[in-house]
Design a protein around this nucleic acid. Structure first.
Length: 435
RNA sequence: GCAGGGAUUGGGGAGCGGUCAAACCCAGCAGACUGUAAAUCUGCCGCCUUGUGCUUCGUAGGUUCGAAUCCUACUCCCUGCACCA
């Protein structure tokens, strides 16, 4: 009998999404309507799957009637958060920050409901207030509330202080004040009394709460006026950060990381991690997840849970059309269903899988070798790599194992008269269109 | 500032005049086994025109028939000490 989730706290707990919360926070989440903000850094021009957890949690809060605020760090991004880093950041130009911010704004908008009647989401850029700060005023009003003694005790600061050569710049050292100030501003202007974030944000969040306490005192019951909740750092069963194995977290921007690739990324999740990820990253509840848990146990080979995870996330991030596309490409590559696809569906596959074009006459003249194509499509890093892999039996042309890396591509190799599929190993595919 | 130590192929880390494209470990890739999994086993893991081939061992020079290995200068890092406070 699946358990029932009757409130947001039970929900988050069941998902393993709640790592810590300030005293009294849970009571408010259950019995009150709160406003919670979460910051997103414009350090890159796309959100990535590491942002999925905070994003989903804001969305979950909204579904339980709370009001979410997504903060775009257009101001804080100019300084750089030292949390969780062991080296000084290089500063981004304002133009880059703003350009990144615009792209991220668009991505954020799809996760939250901005038209809800009682609790519409908000998207705010902290550049609005941070960029106009007067230094002297800030030192007098805000800086006075912080002691350096406490600040240097933070792990993120201390680890950098201990390093002789690098150290931490005054700029990054000051970061904590800015984020605390954000919280104060949001508390005063938006009635925002919750902040969420990863565990690495715990210190920053507490700083903000403390600042609000100094300015506004405590609630009548003695608890803080402001609260914080933090999410665990998501690692796989080997202890690696999610996405680390492929060298960096997959981007949510379909142009940087196609829906197909996102689908595949999650489809390949280990049995040991898949249920945990479903709970963290999808809307599915106990009644859907428990059967999947059973499926992993009883019949892991069918990969029902992995498929569900991949489908759910792809749809959440890229919508129904993105999911359809990912599915079509998957079917085409892994079941070789090219014959059954119509011309327009084929176009869709081309769109969903990165492809390149080559000239028909080069095929007719047998002017292009397999290894050249493999390198050109980035399937192999170098000719040596291509040959090596061929030698090891890891390269395929249209599902035929390639014996000779130097073999030319000939007209009879074309599928549908204009299509070539390269494959490396079991799941790395490249599509080549012949024009 | 003084005195020592160090910078090696993605990471860690051997090598200290030829036998070094450079041990070993991790990561990565391919194959086998499977389930587009994990574990395990095998192979690979600088580049190319596959060769007594080419370019690599912080940067620039030098010594030598020959240097990652020796010398000089420079850059950066680490450890002591001093200076400052």
């Amino acid at each position: 009998m699946p358990q029932q989730l009757t409130n947001i706290v039970e929900d988050l707990r069941w998902r393993g999404a709640l790592s810590d919360a300030t005293p009294g926070a849970e009571d408010l989440l259950i019995n009150d309507k709160i406003t919670c903000y979460n910051g997103f850094d414009p350090t890159s021009d796309s959100l990535h799957i590491g942002n999925l957890l905070p994003l989903m949690c804001l969305a979950r809060l909204q579904r339980y009637g709370h009001t979410p605020i997504a903060i775009l760090g257009g101001g804080t991004g100019m300084i750089g958060d030292p949390s969780g880093r062991n080296d000084e950041r290089s500063l981004l130009s304002i133009e880059d920050i703003d350009a990144n911010g615009e792209k991220i704004r668009v991505q954020l908008e799809q996760f939250l409901d901005f038209d809800a009647k009682s609790n519409p989401a908000q998207l705010i850029n902290n550049a609005d207030w941070l960029r106009n700060i007067n230094y002297l005023d800030f030192l007098r009003d805000i800086g006075k509330n912080f002691t350096v003694n406490t600040m240097i005790r933070r792990d993120s600061v201390r680890s950098r202080m201990d390093r002789e050569g690098e150290g931490i710049s005054y700029t990054e050292f000051s970061y904590a004040l800015l984020q605390a100030y954000d919280y104060l501003v949001l508390y005063e202007q938006e009635n925002c009394n919750f902040q969420s974030g990863g565990t690495d944000q715990w210190g920053n969040i507490l700083d903000g709460i403390d600042l609000i306490r100094r300015k506004h005192g405590n609630a009548t019951n003695g608890n803080s006026l402001a609260h914080g909740i933090v999410f665990p750092l998501i690692t796989d069963s080997k202890g690696d950060k999610l996405g680390k194995s492929i060298g960096g977290a997959p981007a949510l921007d379909p142009n940087k990381f196609s829906p197909y690739r996102l689908y595949q990324f999650f489809f390949n999740t280990d049995d040991a991690d898949v249920i945990r990820y479903i709970k963290l990253f999808t809307w599915l509840g106990p009644e859907e997840v428990e059967p999947l848990e059973e499926a992993v146990r009883e019949n892991p080979g069918r990969r029902e849970a992995q498929q569900t995870l991949a489908e759910q996330i792809t749809e959440i991030v890229h919508g129904q059309s993105g999911l359809d596309q990912a599915r079509r490409v998957t079917r085409a590559f892994f079941r070789g269903e090219f014959d059954t696809l119509s011309a327009s569906e084929l176009d869709d596959v081309f769109a969903g899988a990165s492809s390149i074009e080559i000239e028909k006459c080069d095929i007719d003249n047998r002017a292009i070798s397999y290894e050249e194509l493999a390198v050109a499509t980035n399937l192999a890093q170098s000719f040596s790599d291509a040959r090596r892999t061929v030698q090891q039996g890891g390269m395929y042309l249209n599902s035929e194992r390639v014996e000779d890396a130097a073999r030319p591509i000939a007209p009879e190799d074309l599928l549908h008269g204009n299509l070539i599929i390269l494959r490396r190993g079991r799941r790395e595919h490249r599509l080549i269109r012949v024009a």
